[in-house]
Amino acid sequence: MSLDTAAPDNTPHVASVVSDEVVIELSKVNKWFGEFHVLKDIDLTVYKGERIVVCGPSGSGKSTAIRCINRLEEHQEGDIIVNGTVMGTNLKNIDAIRRNVGMVFQSFNLFPHLTVLENCTLAPIWVRNLSKVEAERIAMEYLERVKIPEQAEKYPGQLSGGQQQRVAIARSLCMSPTIMLFDEPTSALDPEMISEVLDVMVGLAESGMTMIVVTHEMGFAKRVADRVIFMDQGEIVEQNTPEEFFNNPKSDRTKLFLSQILAH
């Protein structure tokens, strides 16, 4: 079957920097929303520096899965270990994990009552106890990295969607996380703004960040991912390298999904 993608295939794959150190481990994770079994025996091991793209139809549990990694959702069964810290009801452990795991949301979730710079310095000042000067220096560094230092004094409402999402990425990076989670970072953006956000994410990948990205941007997956995971009905149906995944999908469900997502 033909699996042509709209994304340019000529761009080279970002060099892989996967080490053999395990940073995230999910084993037999189960979660229910009331009666609805949303995650079924999820097993996943993520190595340091690995870039994982998670895709799947809506309602497949992919967002829920990554939201369990920083406890925005509670799992009911199984173990989640992040950077050697066991996720449980212990608040100290949760705080420790959240300090190390940055997250970027589909709807940006910037704080509208604070300027861009204040958005970026808030957590470093109040969670990491940095001085204001130091926090602002770091914030400006990251705002430059996402190419919007000139917007530092503006409020989020004055920026375009793409700019807001880049601020959100910079805001997460200001906490110096070792792992970044992306929950459909480009789904709420106008088409012409998607690439500016993806460029920033590619740059982040080049710097060796461990990333788990829930996205439908298959071009991004081909270019950046070390592993692509396909989820459906709360299960991991298939996981493989991008070449294998796109060119030689194993399960029928994956083939159907790929044909639907790439056909248009």
Binding site: M103, F111, P112
Partner: peptide, 30 residues
Amino acid sequence: INKGQYEAAQAMGLNFWKMMALIVMPQALK
């Protein structure tokens, strides 16, 4: 206040009282 504001604050490691005082209350009070 949008649920996303709470989630963003939590994801950045703010505890309950800091989240309320710095993120939620200023917006809600306005």
